[in-house]
Amino acid sequence: MSKNFTSISIKLIILAYFIVTILIIKESYFDSTVIKDISLITSSFCTLIIAILLFDRFDYRKKIFDKKLDIVLSLLEDLKSTSIMLLYVNKPKEIWYAAGSRIIDKKQLNIKHLKETIDFSCCVLIQPSNFAKYLRKIELYKANPFMPKEIVKSLNFISHCPLHAIEDDTKYNSHYIQVSFNDRDNKNYSLDSWYRTADSMTFEILIMGYINCLDNIEKWINIHSNYDADLNL
């Protein structure tokens, strides 16, 4: 609770106490019974005020919320600083498209342009060591006790899963998109070092998963704020 809320609550309790006391005195004979009743009411109201003051002193809810906000903002910064490198190959159509380092930003990603260039339903290929290094950071956020559950759920698009080699699988080695995370110097495009996920994750699931997560973070911040965050996403 904020100090203003606590102060207003105590003032309202004191006001209610005087109103109740006056009504009791007005509607009753001022005898030992009334004095006893007033004493009980006084004790109850004092206990309530002390409880509010103690709760405000420890301020658990605010401390927990501050922890949640810190970890959510840290995740947001990490997601936004993620850079991905893309190589799209469609051998049957003789398409080869390379995109340099792109950060997870709606404007820089330019989904409309990507959809005109890349088949969003094609399979994503990753390198185990690169993916594992990036995933470790994401898993730490998912395991954080203060991370809101709805945001943890939105991170499930990227998680530990079995990987399968594709170098001898014609279904995947003629039409694919290689994705590297935070690795601008990666120039190894040989298929023998690239793998697909067990469920053959598509590029649409990957890229829209990021956007959905960013949207959920912004929604969470706006719900718990008195004004729109207006974030640069």
Rank of each mutant, 00 (worst) to 15 (best):
W194M: 13
I84D: 04
S180E: 09
L15R: 01
R184C: 03
S32C: 11
I22L: 05
F181Q: 12
W194N: 11
R61F: 06
W220I: 07
L109A: 06
D168E: 07
I223W: 11
L140A: 13
E150S: 10
H160N: 10
K106W: 08
L163R: 02
G209R: 01
D66E: 13
D183Y: 09
L54I: 15
I158A: 00
I158Y: 00
I71D: 02
F55C: 02
T170I: 00
T197Q: 00
I24K: 11
N110L: 10
S44P: 03
I151F: 00
S28H: 12
L163Y: 05
L87M: 07
T47G: 15
L214P: 00
L69Q: 15
R184W: 04
D66R: 12
L109D: 06
S174E: 02
N130Y: 09
I205Y: 00
E94G: 05
I103G: 02
L114Q: 15
I151A: 01
S101K: 12
Q108P: 00
D169A: 03
L109M: 14
F45C: 12
L69S: 14
Y134A: 00
H113A: 13
E139C: 05
L109F: 13
E77R: 12
I14W: 01
I111N: 06
M85D: 05
V152S: 01
S39F: 15
L233D: 05
A143K: 15
S225T: 10
S28N: 15
Y227T: 14
D169S: 05
I207K: 00
T202S: 15
V89G: 03
E77D: 11
E27S: 14
D183M: 06
